[in-house]
Write a protein that binds this DNA or RNA. Structure first.
Lengths: 186, 186
DNA sequence: ATGTGCATGTAACTGGTTACATGATTCG
DNA sequence: CGAATCATGTAACCAGTTACATGCACAT
């Protein structure tokens, strides 16, 4: 369970891009934030890793140590870095918050403009989603059971929070881009 | 894509519980709210349906019509109804909003108390999640790139909206339960 | 004639899971 | 002595996807 569709592939590539890691390292790291984005099992992690290596997106160095088992340390290649960049810059299709958050996590190679473009796209998608929810809520009116009403209201409350946050975040960032004195936003 | 882990099984069972439907009917229905909860493909829908029938949770009646192809109308059995009830009443483990919303959608057989128990459980889970997020955000402090900060802030904003909504919804419902005059909440 | 809607289903593939196998070392 | 940590991997399974197969009716 790694939060749908982000494929584990690019998540791992993103982690290795920051610093070389073994499969075990990655598992450890993700385990500690499993509550946030979920941690894949070894059964998917190792195969995915060797596939990335096979595709030339990363290189493997076997590090032998006395006493402990040898570890395979994976480092990103130039091809890997550009593949990651390409993936992370391309507009994410609308999905769960978790998927989007994972994308942001890996997106440290993103320029401020690209980052803002991601947020803008998300804002656009969530706004449309929110409008749809509002329509349906009105259309449902008295009909439908209380569970359905609650479901819609709940979804709507969350969507509203998302658009509000995205709006203010974008505003903050464009202001920070306005005065060119401080490089770091916020 | 039916929003993880709810297994399609109980979603379909829930739909058929409301009124008998063919596989095609279900697909149509879900297609129209695919933006909300996602629609499964025929390739998973039909097999799941026949498995439910095989397990005795629903019965199949082949309805022949001149001009149009015959349809297999599925109706829920007693066993099916109790299986659904059992599933829907059991505490949902913490997952995505979508999964929870789907549960609520199907939960029209739920008593107000059971419904409130579901919300209470969710509130408990999200509150813990929110606390964890707040901790990590503080711990991250100056470290971490802007993407990571944004990811955490975004998640936190949504979590806050969830707890706020859940709190007020529960309050409303317990008030409505207080004056026993009107049976329908809200 | 061509495509769209109705209606069912199967087969191949994908991307994950759990459980298993191996084997050394350190901690209680 | 047994359990946990380190470290890698494979095999069986599962739930979903896409693409394909079939076939009739109706509208363009």
């Amino acid at each position: 369970m790694t939060a749908n569709q982000m494929s584990l592939r690019y998540l791992m590539l993103g982690l290795i891009a920051e610093k070389p890691m073994s499969g075990y390292d990655i598992k450890q790291f993700l385990q500690r934030l499993s509550w946030l984005i979920g941690s894949p099992s070894f059964g998917s992690l190792y195969p995915a890793l060797s596939r990335l290596a096979r595709d030339g997106l990363l290189t493997v160095a076997v590090v032998l140590r006395e006493d402990r088992p040898p570890r395979k340390v994976h480092s990103i290649t130039e091809a890997g870095r550009s593949a990651l960049q390409e993936w992370v810059a391309q507009p994410a299709r609308f999905g769960s918050l978790k998927a989007f958050v994972m994308r942001l996590m890996v997106a440290n190679s993103l320029s401020r403009d690209d980052l803002m473009a991601q947020l803008q796209q998300r804002l656009y998608d969530v706004t449309r989603y929110q409008a749809r929810l509002a329509d349906v809520t009105v259309a449902l009116g008295q009909a439908g059971d209380s569970g359905q009403h609650l479901a819609l209201e709940y979804s709507l409350a969350v969507a509203r929070a998302e658009t509000a946050w995205l709006g203010s975040a974008l505003e903050r960032m464009s202001q920070a881009a306005g005065d060119r004195r401080d490089a770091v936003p916020r």
